[in-house]
């Protein structure tokens, strides 16, 4: 089966069957926001949510991740931690799935990252299609991530009283096998689905003032733009924009040794280009001083460097950086600012 239908009233039992495969993490309400967390019952989740504070990245590239354990006395060579448990990410937005696809590119690059890849093998991703904008901060249409393009095992689309179940992998197939209550998509529901998608497509419009090739071009020419100076003046350097980004993958490596001074653990911890000492080296030299150049770097990592290197935009348009910025620095305004500037000059 490629496309199935499940009634919303059957979601509880389907969800319970998923738990047999492993822990399930899904979006949950937290005060005025949402976070991914461990879910025990379907009703604990809020499937109609705006992007969570941290992306589901915290499960496949944890803020602090053990790489290996070592022993000093007597010395024992360490092996990478590669044994991970199966788990399911439930209700992942299409933009966050695009974020996972970016990570796949990074960690598959030679030399491939054993921790990431072994963990990734154990993840089952059940996505949920967005039918309308989360809020005005999202720029997903500009990069096309409001439409799913693989990277998941199952995708759910809300059809009112039921969900459309798009099965996209063997793992996904496995999760619906033998479930009598998931039936094959019929012609009538197919029409309903087409209608819903037609409505959806009317709602999403490129949020930038130009198409991506032109955006990429203004980045090429806008390295010395006053836009960066302005952004740098307003930025407080809190690092939040990098902390919440689903495609930021920089990390630092640290060793912790226990008080017996022999048993230790090497971990990688998230590290951000917005940190003051991120580009400072042993001699004290700082290769990227100042908040303006640091912000510029962040944007260039999303719209230029990754395009040159991987032919891929590393912004998923999730809007988290804008949503979290206390200085109200907006990705949409910054990119459009560059475009305006070029056109003004042009």
């Amino acid at each position: 089966m490629k496309h199935g239908i499940i009634l919303k009233s059957d979601m509880d039992q389907w969800f319970d069957s998923l738990k047999k495969r492993g822990k399930v993490y899904g979006p949950k309400k937290k005060e005025s926001a949402f976070v991914f967390g461990l879910v025990h019952a379907f009703k604990e989740m809020s499937l109609s949510y705006i992007p969570t504070i941290l992306p589901p990245k915290k499960y496949y590239l944890p803020p602090k991740e053990s790489l290996f354990k070592f022993k000093i006395k007597p010395y024992e060579a360490a092996k990478a931690t590669t044994a991970f448990e199966e788990f399911i990410l439930f209700g992942v937005h299409t933009c966050d799935i695009a974020g996972i696809q970016c990570m796949d590119v990074i960690f598959n690059e030679n030399p491939a990252d054993p921790n990431y890849l072994s963990r990734k093998e154990k993840i089952t991703i059940i996505g949920i299609e967005c039918l309308d904008y989360c809020d005005s901060y999202a720029t997903c249409a500009s990069v096309g991530t409001h439409i799913h393009k693989g990277g998941y095992d199952i995708m759910l689309t809300d059809l009112g009283t039921a969900y459309l179940v798009h099965i996209n992998s063997e793992k996904g197939e496995h999760l619906i096998k033998g479930k009598k209550y998931i039936r094959e998509l019929d012609l009538e529901t197919r029409k309903k689905w087409d209608k819903i998608i037609e409505e959806k497509n009317k709602k999403f419009k490129n949020e930038f003032k130009a198409e991506l090739p032109e955006v990429s071009k203004v980045f090429e020419e806008g390295f010395f733009s006053p836009v960066w100076e302005d952004v740098g003046k307003r930025c407080v350097g809190c690092t939040n924009c990098t902390a919440v980004c689903p495609t930021c993958y920089c990390f630092d490596v640290i060793d912790d040794v226990s008080l017996n001074l022999s048993d230790g653990e090497r971990s990688r911890v998230w590290s951000y280009c917005q940190m003051d000492d991120f580009a400072r080296v042993a001699t004290g030299e700082d290769f990227r001083p100042g908040r303006g150049p640091r912000q510029r770097h962040r944007y260039f990592r999303k719209f230029k460097y990754s395009v040159l290197k991987y032919n891929k935009y590393f912004c998923t348009g999730c809007g988290r950086c804008t949503r979290t910025c206390m200085a109200k620095i907006s990705l949409k305004e910054t990119v459009n600012g560059l475009l305006d500037e070029k056109r003004g000059k042009g």
Binding site: K30, E31, S32, A33, V35, T52, I53, L54, P63, G237, C238, T239, N240, A243, V244, W270, Y272, M275, D276, D277, T324, M326
Partner: peptide, 16 residues
């Protein structure tokens, strides 16, 4: 640490 408390606060997913 030379970075601000926000780094830890975000990782703890507190509401700002």
């Amino acid at each position: 640490p030379q970075y601000p408390v926000c780094v830890e606060c975000k990782q703890n997913e507190n509401i700002c």
